[in-house]
Nucleic acid binder design. Sequence first.
DNA 1: TGCTAGATTGAGACCGGTCTCAATTCGTTT
DNA 2: AAACGAATTGAGACCGGTCTCAATCTAGCA
Lengths: 355, 355
Amino acid sequence: MSETGTGRREATVSDVARVARVSKATAARALGDYGAVSDAVRDRVQKAADELGYRPNALARTMSTGRSNTLGIIIGDIENPFFAKATRGAADVAAEAGYDLILSNSDEEPSVEAKAVAVQLAKQVDGLLIAPASSLEPGNLQPVLDAGRPLVLFDRTVPGVDVDAVITDNRAGARQLTELMLDAGHRRIAFISTLAHDGAFRAGEELSSSAVADRVIGFVETLAAAGIAHPESFVHLNARRDGVDVLAARLLDGEAAVTAIIASDSLIALAVFKAAQERGVLIPQQLSLAGFDDAPWMSLTTPGVTVVEQPIHEIGAQATRTLLHRIRGDGRPPETTVLPQTLVERGSVAAPPED
Amino acid sequence: MSETGTGRREATVSDVARVARVSKATAARALGDYGAVSDAVRDRVQKAADELGYRPNALARTMSTGRSNTLGIIIGDIENPFFAKATRGAADVAAEAGYDLILSNSDEEPSVEAKAVAVQLAKQVDGLLIAPASSLEPGNLQPVLDAGRPLVLFDRTVPGVDVDAVITDNRAGARQLTELMLDAGHRRIAFISTLAHDGAFRAGEELSSSAVADRVIGFVETLAAAGIAHPESFVHLNARRDGVDVLAARLLDGEAAVTAIIASDSLIALAVFKAAQERGVLIPQQLSLAGFDDAPWMSLTTPGVTVVEQPIHEIGAQATRTLLHRIRGDGRPPETTVLPQTLVERGSVAAPPED
DNA sequence: TGCTAGATTGAGACCGGTCTCAATTCGTTT
DNA sequence: AAACGAATTGAGACCGGTCTCAATCTAGCA
């Protein structure tokens, strides 16, 4: 009641102990709810704590127990709906288990990611969830392994780093979308991703996101199986987010024009849809469009956008469950959980226009 | 190089000191980059640290310095694009200043929020950013004040709690949208929000979100000024997210049908747009629609959706800047920063249909 | 009533840093 | 060469909890 003391130092276990006339150890036991304390003393301590407005210091606890009840999560960008959903999935599972989340955005920059990893480790997170900025360089993950801290990757794997991962079947999803286009009669189909990559994509080249890599593989192999020549020439990377419209425009006319586009995420699908609309290109009559990741607006447009959907919330949730298992000391060999992608057909795919 | 020791305890300052043959105090000075250390010793310590794979323990540092370089942010739901953007704004400013973010979702539940506040305080955050779940009960914020920890509210204020806040001019925004509708000739205009509220809205009632309250005030006063009777009867709250379609359907036909709808956020606008589409109600010919918060898809639909836009990223960024000032000891009296809302006209508002 | 197992309590080390204060070393000046 | 101030270093307390281990207390049973 009389807690108005502005400059007053926060009450500690010792303070409470003094007021309750017990030892620090006993007060700590009563407050921390561990060890054995008689009911009488417990009440007395609790009363003293209330009176003093005692608020525990979780860091001090972590110092001695070694457990922080905090997880780190490093993602590309929380504004990206994919990461927002996955983060929510992670936060839900974490909260349920009494854990908090420290969030870092890497902007898909390995250097930023490296710094985030260092900070999170310094803050003694009990485990880390990372959507790695690069599937090619395991370097950023090494400190986590060195520190012996549990680590679960999600959305992407990093070959060579033997840890748990939760991903979806991107290759199958890409195959499905590509087949859908082929079945509709398309032969010139573009795949667009914003993934940064040096120069144009060439067959066999490794990509810095295993998720995109898997999609590209599924796309290329399906085209190849259908007898399409140089399928990799239809893969367009480096479509910087604000440049998707430019790329789309280029793909929509000229002699190299395609009749179908597969967008590697919902933001790209949106940009393509807009570009087509602005240029008066009718979907699906003149251009077929399909993409990865469902978004609420996709059933709003005319036509709706056909996509393969990922259980994004579940990716984050499952990754966190796995992480918690590891924290609790599950010693099984690391495994990669692959969740399914499911096709949601709307109206954006149709037969290509007649010449 | 030889860091493969799996069970090996993490190296500490003392370990480094021993290897570098200096005192713990000196090693700490060299590693922590404070105090004075000779160059020779600094190098020797650094070498020892590298050799041992020394990684600092930020919590131990916090224990003695009292500074955690961590901010807490408590929002409704990170999946909501509004909060995702604001959080990104906060994270950017925080990262720039060397701070991390601990994230909690309150789901707009005061009880969940209360728990989040307690946990964040226990984790010794240097300050808190909160989009308060309730503008009516200051109870949840009291512990923050008691703990003497800097606090900045955003999106909503809590009358009676004298702290900094960053909001936008919702009343003006609502006025603008309402006038737009009135000018187009509408007389029956509905305002829809998902804000939970007991029973139907009555004039003068207080709402648990000051943001929505301000919008309602702007809406109602503008209708009243136009001579519309019982303007508050056009306010529809409690539109639970999945019930917006039902409500919209109800507003679209029957004798109580409205000719225009103002949606209190982009998710509601989407639901209304969809409901209209599904029922074959043409926008803007049969129904005019406008809303708060811009979203990428709003320029995709036919017609585009007219909105007042808030500088959401900046809300989070500005709130964090203010918080950092307070942490650094700015003693000025708390102030509420009001950012402008700007009208973005697209095609979703037109004259009401003739009877 | 005496004795012992079990429950309760207290004392103090410990986690890994920072920081104060005193001791030591060094470079200069006279 | 002695003396002085500045720079560097070391010793140890401290932050606020937890936890081990020993001391004390209580109750049950012979």
